[in-house]
């Protein structure tokens, strides 16, 4: 498979009467010259690393090497445990996990890029949260990772998953779209709904710039992961309710590519523009690097 169209993926799944993940597992086993069980086992390993990076990230005393960030997952954990967060249990849990994985990453801990390290908190937060909340089998989570990977592969083929090429829309945007499609499949939605969820999630993040303070994957990346998982839930929820994206996912990806191309280099991971160029952003940079 070429992974150059979400619509084609959906069409194949619909024709065979299966989920997108079933199509992708079969294809990937063939490409990698392994059995479907072996491909599944490898993805299961990624899910396990995701779980570990959530646990590692919830730490009261955690600080990144730069000293700029840390312990926000812990703070969120406390509020959710006390039942005091305003968005309810699912959103609260998702935010805890997204922050935790992102903070593990900022501390040079072990994570699974999904699709990148800068956006590594979104997909695990979405999948692990809905799995726990709905009491789903782990198999659904592992399979959903294949669905997410397919969405990511199309975006990587037709646009970009690198902040340096397409801004943050290419990283947290892609992660959010991947997570939205995965959530739809895990919650019993159709492949077509997964396509709409992908389109909606991506549309909401179009144009987002990559402007890391001091060039570090910390500010604003960690909080954008919390936003990214929230956006994934919004998109999945809408799609599962039967709400459709007026613009097809493949055209949204096309728009994303065009927007990324027209973005100034200052807004594509060079730490020359956006938040990195604010007085506070510059002061923080000076604090770290002198």
């Amino acid at each position: 498979m070429k992974y150059d169209s979400i619509a084609d993926l959906v069409k194949i799944a619909e024709e065979q009467g299966v989920n997108i993940s079933d199509v992708v597992i079969k294809d990937q086993a063939m490409v990698r010259e392994v059995t479907e069980a072996e491909a599944y086992a490898q993805m299961e390993k990624s899910l396990n690393v995701m779980r570990e990076s959530v646990l590692e990230g919830i730490d009261k005393d955690k600080r990144s090497a730069s000293g700029l960030t840390g312990s926000s997952a812990y703070k969120m954990r406390v509020v959710v445990d006390e039942g005091k967060n305003i968005c309810g249990k699912v959103f609260g849990e998702a935010m805890v996990k997204a922050l935790a994985v992102s903070e593990t990453n900022a501390c040079m801990g072990k994570i699974v890029a999904a699709p990148t390290a800068g956006s590594c908190g979104i997909l695990p937060a979405a999948i692990l949260t809905i799995m726990e909340d709905k009491g789903l089998d782990e198999e659904k989570a592992v399979k959903a990772l294949f669905t997410a990977s397919a969405v990511g592969m199309v975006i990587a083929t037709k646009a970009s998953i690198a902040g340096a090429e397409g801004g943050c829309q290419a990283e947290c945007g892609s992660g959010s779209a991947m997570a939205a499609s995965a959530l739809v499949e895990m919650c019993g939605g159709t492949p077509k709904m997964a396509e709409h969820a992908c389109a909606i999630a991506l549309k909401n993040i179009l144009g987002l710039v990559c402007d890391p303070v001091a060039g570090l994957v910390e500010i604003p990346c960690i909080k954008r992961n919390a936003m990214g998982v929230a956006n994934a839930f919004v998109a999945a929820e809408l799609a599962l309710a039967g709400i459709e994206s007026a613009i097809p996912a493949d055209e949204v990806i096309w728009a994303m590519k065009k927007i990324g191309d027209s973005m100034s280099p200052a807004l594509k991971e060079t730490a020359d523009g956006g938040l990195a160029a604010t007085p506070t952003g510059k002061a923080l940079c000076k604090k770290v690097f002198g």
Binding site: Y3, V24, V112, A148, S149, M153, M178, E218
Partner: peptide, 18 residues
């Protein structure tokens, strides 16, 4: 394309590209 290029690599942070 490979699914594990997207869900992966399993890596030490903080940046997949950098």
């Amino acid at each position: 394309m490979d699914a594990f290029d997207i869900i992966g690599p399993i890596m030490i942070g903080p940046s997949s590209s950098h």
